[in-house]
Amino acid sequence: MAEQAQGISPLSAVVADVAQGVALALRGGGGSYALSDVLPPDEAVAPAAVRVLGADALAPYALDRAAATGGATDRTTADRALVRAALTAFAPGADASEVSLWSYRGLLAAARALLPADPDGWPPEPPAATAWTATDPWPKLAHRASQLASLALPGLDTPLAAGLAERTDDLARGFVRAVRRRDWLQAAGLGRWLASAADVPDTLGLDSGLVFVRQMSGTQPRVALHVAAAARFYGRGS
C-alpha cells in the first residue's frame, strides 16, 4: 500500500486500494467481498478512507443485499465497526459543504440499507439541501454530482438522486466537458449517474463513452470503480 506508492499520501494509497477491491468485486472477481478484508481495521487511516469512498465502500453489498443484512457475522460486524468509526470521526461540521454533507449521508444510507442493524443505532442524518440540484448552472452541478457518484447505487433512494434525475441533459453536458478536459474521474462519476438515468440522450453515446473513459484513464481505481458500478448496477458501458 503506502510503502509501494512513494509520493502518494498514505490515505490516497489506501483509498486507491479499497477502490480497486470494490471495482474487482463489482466486476465479479476475487470471491466474496468484505470491506474489512480490503481495508484492515487496524489501518490508521481506515476511517478516513471509508469516509472518502462513502457509500462505495459498501457498494458490492448492493449486489446481494440479503446476504449482507441477513445477520451479523464476524465480517459484517467488523465492517459495521469500520463504518461507524468513519461516521463518528468525520461527521460534517457546521460549515460543511453540500458535497461533504451528501457523501456523509450516502455512507449512512448505505450502512442502513446494506449492513446489519447497529445495536447502538446509526448516527443521525445531518440535514442537507437539494435546492442546488435544481439551480446550479450545469458545469457546477456536474462537478458536484461527480463528487457524489457513490450515491448512484441501487437502494439508495436519496433526495439527491431524485434531484439529479431532473437534470439528465445537464449531467450529460458535464460528461462531454469532462471528457474533453480529460478529467476522467469527473467523467466516470457523471457517466455512472447517467447510467442510472432512464432518459439519457442517445446521441451522447454513453456506453462507448464509459468504455472510452475507462481505457483512456489508464489505471485510476476510482475511475474503474465508477465504470464497474455503471456496468454492474445499470448495465451500461459493458
Binding site: 458545469p139 441533459d169 462531454v176 446521441t203
Partner: peptide, 14 residues
Amino acid sequence: AEYLRLWVPSWLEC
C-alpha cells in the same frame, strides 16, 4: 436540432 440543443452548451463552455 435536438443534437445541437443538447451539446452546443457544452462545446461553447469548453
